[in-house]
Write a protein that binds this DNA or RNA. Structure first.
Lengths: 353, 353
DNA sequence: CTGAAAGCGCTAACAA
DNA sequence: TTGTTAGCGCTTTCAG
């Protein structure tokens, strides 16, 4: 809005000229103001203002060798669990004066590799990625660029990249044990697409060889509330009704819960339902969801610290295992105790639609 | 892993030297391979590979004047509505070969201004911001840097920045009208903190001067499922029981729904509940939530397009109004029709805990 | 088709 | 306390 502003953005030289000092002095008032005489500083600052000068990030980066941002690759933002990880990463990164570039991969290794390439291209100083199964192009990119990259949501000290995460198999087993401890033997397992998701596969594998050996039936659906509803309906149509539903993800558990209610099945009286994740909302569902807590906020912060320190010290961080633990709430109950009382079933069937 | 690799990353000159060509030629094989003789190109590519060379984003940016990323400032990632906006922005930006840097502000104008500064410092080419109420520092930053910035979640053609959003007041009014159309007159309104959120204030203001004039009581809580639960409980303890609950946000409506169920109040039989947002999960809640749909995915895409075109053409985009519309589902019903039948109330009160 | 050389906006020695 | 100047890694004329 100044006079007939000369089209182009002002640069250091312009400011220096306008203030009648050298470029070095201008640079100093930005980076070490205390080394510049007060009067000079003032002149320079005025010049900066009147020219609407904003330092060029690129020029700064080329000298410092730092862009001050890192990238994160997650499957989706629509599952609150990833949103949580990113939120905590972002806030922790801020303490290192680092920003976060987000890219979603939709669980597709090809997209993941492409987006990773994009992040490297724009100058990310480090990367966070979910899981331990990636495209060869991804690995070669990391190799070539030597980019500090940590893998999350999975703990595997033998993996080629440092992992910061939890033991997915153990978490699933914890949930199963809780159910068998309560006397459940016929159990429906609901999970998302396993082909494209190594965390899901690990969780499923954690269910194997359990003792006592339960009778498990598997339902694979989309990883969404709608998917959970679908599974809930499918379970009710099965020949042998399970007494409990083990969901390998809280979103799925929510859907199952809603659908069971819609169909007039009471939880935990007629069926127990357990989740895995412990989303912030899970504690407030009706009934409050029993689940296995995954420390995703801590994980995001830990990943941020690991990347920041790697970038700064050049030292590869150690893998880190975060514990998960069972949170017993209201959606699971001992089998048989109240069983046989189809509580409120009739009263509820006319609800909804 | 190559021999005693010379500590530092290779640069263009190294590649040129190793391939026995000039830097210009190397630059050409990246940017216009077809202008380089096949044999030369091959030599260069081999040199690139053996030196593990990755172009420097900063150096590239300094020449092109482009960093290829934009920033987005949102209050939080924990509300699915913002996660959705960002997801759709990110995917649309990708088509413009632009990346997305995310910053959360926690509804704090000071943090917002600081983070905006950070985004400018690292070279964002454009900005997306939520709402139309910001700190003076924010405005002066935008002014100085002349950064293409669009405001979302709000439509106001008179605003100093182009807005891409909906009419929050109208959306709230739509919800209220639906309730009064169903005969409700005593209505509880649940909303998040209004002091720090202009969208919330706009929605509340949309409720004023409605005809027929309903008897409104307001409940302000934290914008979370837990907050919704709290409001649900508070409503039940009020002296004059409302026949309907109008939630100015779907997360709040979810919490209210869960809490009412927990307290044995049936929806919509005893109380109707309506939300505002239409989150992806809302259609699957029990009962399915009646709400006002806000086109946030389209908004994210529109914001991405607007910023991209602004950056590319230097032309300020037009403000854009996106329509919201009522989605009637199962959580609202005509007052009186089924009223007086405290359906399933008794049967349900022993649920949960 | 290829090379030489002049910058891009800024930082950091080194001098003064 | 301030100025001069040589780069940072790359793109881009302009010659050959």
């Amino acid at each position: 809005m100044q006079r007939n502003t000369p089209r182009k953005r002002a640069n250091l030289r312009d400011v220096a000229a306008s203030a009648g000092v050298s470029v070095a002095t201008v640079s100093r008032v930005m980076n070490a103001p205390e080394t510049v005489a007060k009067a000079t500083r003032k002149k320079v600052e005025e010049a900066m203002n009147s020219l609407h000068w904003v330092p060029s990030a690129a020029a700064r980066a080329i000298n410092s060798g730092r862009t001050r941002f890192v990238g994160a690759l997650v499957p989706t933002l629509d599952n609150a669990i990833f949103a949580r990880v990113l939120a905590s990463m972002e806030s922790r990164l801020a303490t290192h004066r680092l920003s976060l570039v987000v890219a979603t991969t939709d669980n597709d290794p090809v997209q993941e590799a492409e987006k990773a390439k994009g992040l490297v291209d724009i100058g990310a100083e480090g990367l966070m990625i979910s899981g331990v199964t990636h495209a060869p192009e991804f690995y070669s990119l990391i190799e070539r660029s030597q980019l500090p990259t940590v893998s999350t949501s999975f703990y595997d000290p033998g993996y080629r990249l440092p992992t910061i995460g939890y033991d997915n198999a153990a978490a699933a087993r914890t949930a199963l044990t809780h159910l068998t401890d309560l006397g459940h033997r016929r159990i429906a397992v609901v999970h998302g697409p396993s082909a494209s998701n190594d965390r899901t596969r690990a969780r499923i594998s954690g269910l194997e060889g359990h003792s006592p050996k339960p009778d498990l039936s598997f339902f694979e659906v989309q990883l969404s509330i709608a998917g959970g509803c679908e599974a809930g309906l499918a379970i009710l149509q099965a020949a042998d009704q399970p007494s409990a539903v083990l969901c390998l993800s809280d979103v799925l558990a929510s859907g199952v819960l809603f659908e069971l209610q819609r169909q007039g099945v009471s939880v935990p009286h007629e069926k127990s339902v357990i989740g895995l994740d412990d989303l912030v909302g899970s504690a407030h569902l009706f009934p409050e969801l029993t689940t296995v807590h995954l420390p995703v906020s801590r994980m995001g912060a830990a990943a941020a610290d690991a990347i920041a320190s790697w970038v700064e010290t050049q030292k590869i961080p150690e893998p880190s295992l975060l514990n998960s633990d069972l949170v017993v709430r209201a959606s699971t109950a001992r089998t048989g105790t109240i069983g046989g009382h189809p509580v409120a079933r009739r009263a509820r069937t006319d609800f909804g639609k």
